[in-house]
Amino acid sequence: MSGVPATVGSVSDDAVLVQADGLVKRFGDFEAVRGVDVKVRRGEAFGFLGPNGAGKSSTMRMIACTSPRTAGELRVLGLDPDRHGPRIRGRLGVVPQQDNLDNELTVRQNLQVYGRYFGLSRHQVRARATELLEFAQLSDRADDQVEPLSGGMKRRLTIARSLVNEPELLLLDEPTTGLDPQARHLLWDKLFRLKQQGVTLIVTTHYMDEAEQLCDRLVVMDGGRIVAEGSPAALIAEHSSREVLELRFPIDQQHHHVPLVEDLAERVEVLPDRLLLYATNGEAVLAAATRRGMRPTSSLVRRATLEDVFLRLTGRTLVD
């Protein structure tokens, strides 16, 4: 595990909401999580980034105290999930990957009944449901059934439901997967507001834009392990260049040009239809390449993104 920066700064331990050391989860012979070390502090928005099957959801479920760990140490809100599951869960909010709203209840009842599971009084859940309907912009659908709601509305309701107990720590497993851009931006806005109110967020995602939008700090997981850790900017600085020059060529012509530009960039990546040149100054590299007589069909200089880091660390091969 090279390249993982040491955690810096001295924060007192009660500000640490989640601490995992050598966390392992096995399902039979399959090891989904292979020794994960994580520390999440109060007020942070922390991300688990990784391709499908990287072990993000398994890690989240262990933190949510709905999946016992196989090995390693885990403290959530300072408590051991194996011994204090119900107490910890009482202070968490959980948004699962797939909405599991109660289809036999109305929108409002979903919030009220869920609040009762947390031991809130009838009076409290009534007030809380009205507030949360407002927050989720679902007040006009309050007495409708859940089933006919759109995907975005269901997701908002699931998030609203997870807030019914005013959690200190909110766990969101791929919160915007499958939503249209409007719905995603609306949700990010809601999550951002929660963060400003001091709610600690832990998010898993495979969307780079989501991670960059939401997370102060994140880890990249691959094959059950953490392969990188840091803020989005720090990860880009460490694992990519500042800029990327994309040179497009007719299909299968691109590799002829590699020797011509190899020495101009920190790294050259060959894709089916283009070359990616990682460099600090993309325009300068483009000018140099043009001087050497390179004539791509098109060229583009862009800033490096988390997606470049992600693909570099977890590879371009499809993982299922």
């Binding site: 949510a64 709905t66 599951g85 119900p86 107490r87 869960r89 009482g90 968490l92 959980v94 699962p96 797939q98 599991n100 709203l101 109660d102 289809n103 036999e104 869920y114 599971y117 947390f118 031991g119 107990n165």
Partner: peptide
């Protein structure tokens, strides 16, 4: 199918 219990077990309920 309804996954009602998954939702319940994410709360203090066991």
């Amino acid at each position: 199918y309804a996954k009602v219990y998954d939702a319940m077990l994410a709360t203090p309920l066991g």
